[in-house]
Nucleic acid binder design. Structure first.
Lengths: 156, 156
DNA sequence: AAAAAGTATTTCAAGCTCAAAACATTTTTG
DNA sequence: CAAAAATGTTTTGAGCTTGAAATACTTTTT
């Protein structure tokens, strides 16, 4: 293969990847917008709040602020405000860590657990509706493709 | 098929779709974060600014504010601030629409066009790198899957 | 034990995002 | 033609997001 045809082939794949990215962004944003809207309408809440609750629900003992922002892959300062508001609403509590006066543990309250259970059930139904075009093998296959992208990201 | 096994099948596909969504979100956010970081480092800019410039670059005659927010699928008020800052930087201009004193047209300046050309070239290379796992047929196939999701959204 | 380095969290400033309200102008309607 | 409805944009208030700086505490080094 000549350098010339090589360049042509690379460029065509490159365009296809760009198109892929634009579609990926569009459909992800669309689903996100719909979820945000429903969370607002049905529960008076937001996606970031849901994400924090989901993370905490997987750690019954609670998470330190830094661990929480690590799990969610958002900045430290970001989580502070969301947790502040969730605490105001009685969804989470901050607990001092015994041996370390710098750290605080964040835990779902009982009310928070119950609220998350309700919201998570609705969330699963919504996803089922929004991604209903995919049957089980397709969904599993696509999930694998995304894992490939994510792994590529992590290896940087 | 009994009602019982029906429920089981639906539930398994449902779980697969939920997993798919979580992976889709994770990888899209990862690529977005990387693009945002590079745009910040290399061009001192942001993704929303890039999106506005990209939209305007496809309409040489300019777009009305409402058309711009329509194309980008974000709220009206949102675009106002981004365009304000792009105008401050000499990237875009607002032009009064002759027959309608309510409306303004937003256009890329020459400087804006040149800047967008530079950024778009870098952007395409970045995508090529970040999604490099997919060859042309794969990328095209996946893009088709996302189109299905987007079309489903639009039909709501 | 004092100094230095490291860790955990919050604060800050800037920008993005939305929905809703306000404002201005144009078009339609009674 | 005047009132009402529709259209185009900006403002407002609340919340999310980031990176960087500030604060507080702990561990390590000298």
């Amino acid at each position: 293969m000549t350098a010339h045809s090589q360049a042509r082939v690379a460029s065509a794949a490159s365009k296809a990847r760009l198109r892929l990215w634009l579609r990926m962004l569009k459909s992800t944003r669309g689903v996100e917008a719909e979820l945000r809207e429903r969370l607002r309408q049905e529960f008076g809440s937001t996606l970031p709040r849901f994400d924090v609750m989901a993370a905490l629900s997987r750690y019954e003992a609670g998470l330190k602020m830094s661990a929480l922002s690590g799990v969610l892959r958002v900045s430290n300062g970001n989580v502070t405000g969301i947790v502040d508001r969730l605490a105001d609403d009685g969804i989470v509590v901050r607990v001092q860590v015994p041996g370390d006066r710098r750290a605080t543990l964040v835990r779902l309250t009982r009310k928070g657990q119950e609220e998350f259970t309700r919201q998570a059930a609705a969330h699963e139904l919504w996803i089922d509706e929004l991604l209903g075009d995919f049957d089980e093998p397709e969904a599993t296959n696509l999930a694998g493709c995304f894992d490939a992208i994510s792994r590529r990201e992590e290896g940087r």
